[in-house]
Amino acid sequence: MAFRGPRVWLWRWRRNPLKRRADTVEAWVLLGTWLLTALLGVSAGHAAARSVENGMARERVEWTVVRGVLVEKAPGRTDRETADSRDRVWGTVRWVAPDGTRATGQIRVAPGSVAGTPVTVWTDRVGRLVSEPATAAEARLRATFVGGLVGLSAAAMPLVGGRLLCGRLRRHRLDRWDVAWARFDPLGDRRTG
């Protein structure tokens, strides 16, 4: 087992007669990689989270509740003892759009609901059917999740690029070392003894 001695922090930045130019270049590449990774990851994640949260806030303001009516009986049975309040089936509903025209669409309703049952319908400014907008807490959670994913994805690009560049620099440094060693020890392949 080789003895390694104490670890010296920032060794690539210190003056040393054995330090080569390739060590300095690799140090700058590593520093740039880490700075780009942090900067790009944080800024992309923050921008994505803000965009998602703003979009959901706009939906909460623009989307409105409209009273609709179930057009036909919903499939399934209305069995109050076995039915869960979260059980929903697709049913056709009709509502009046902001321009006064009648619109129809499909939403989730309780199973076995009869035709003519009043239902709540969410529409956009034009009167098209949309889902219920996310609450402020749900929007924050989604924005945080999306921002985290986008930030990690954006941070991965400079990190992978820096690792690839450092690998190429390392290979180049080892090749140059092989050339120098071959010049220094031309008889290195002979065995003694």
Score class of each variant (00 low, 15 high):
Thr24Glu: 03
Met56His: 14
Ala38Tyr: 06
Leu40Ser: 07
Val42Arg: 01
Glu53Lys: 08
Ala48Ser: 07
Trp34Lys: 03
Leu36Gln: 03
Val42Gly: 00
Thr24Arg: 13
Met56Lys: 11
Ala44Lys: 05
Arg58Gln: 07
Arg50Trp: 09
Ser51Pro: 00
Ser51Tyr: 09
Leu35Glu: 02
Gly45Pro: 02
Ala27Arg: 03
Ala49Trp: 05
Ser43Val: 10
Leu31Trp: 11
Gly41Trp: 02
Ala38Glu: 09
Leu31Cys: 12
Trp34Leu: 14
Leu39Arg: 09
Ser43Ala: 08
Glu59Trp: 05
Thr37Cys: 13
Val29Leu: 15
Val52Tyr: 07
Ala44Thr: 09
Trp34Arg: 07
Leu31Phe: 15
Leu35Ile: 13
Leu39Trp: 15
Glu53Val: 03
Ala47Gly: 03
Trp28Met: 14
Ala47Asp: 10
Gly41Leu: 05
Gly55Thr: 13
Glu53Leu: 04
Ser51Asn: 09
Leu30Ile: 11
Val29Pro: 10
Arg58Ile: 10
Ser51Ile: 00
Thr33Arg: 07
Leu36Met: 09
Val25Glu: 01
Gly41Lys: 02
Gly32Asp: 05
Gly55Cys: 08
Leu31Ala: 15
Arg50Ser: 12
Ala44Ser: 15
Ala49Thr: 02
Thr24Tyr: 11
Trp34Gly: 13
Ala38Cys: 12
Glu59Arg: 04
Gly55Tyr: 05
Thr33Met: 13
Ala47Phe: 07
Leu35Asp: 02
Trp34Pro: 00
Val52Lys: 14
Gly45Glu: 08
Thr33His: 07
Arg50Gln: 14
Ala27Tyr: 01
Leu36Trp: 10
Trp34Thr: 12
Gly41Val: 00
Leu40Trp: 15
Val42Trp: 02
Glu26His: 00
Glu26Gln: 06
Leu35Lys: 06
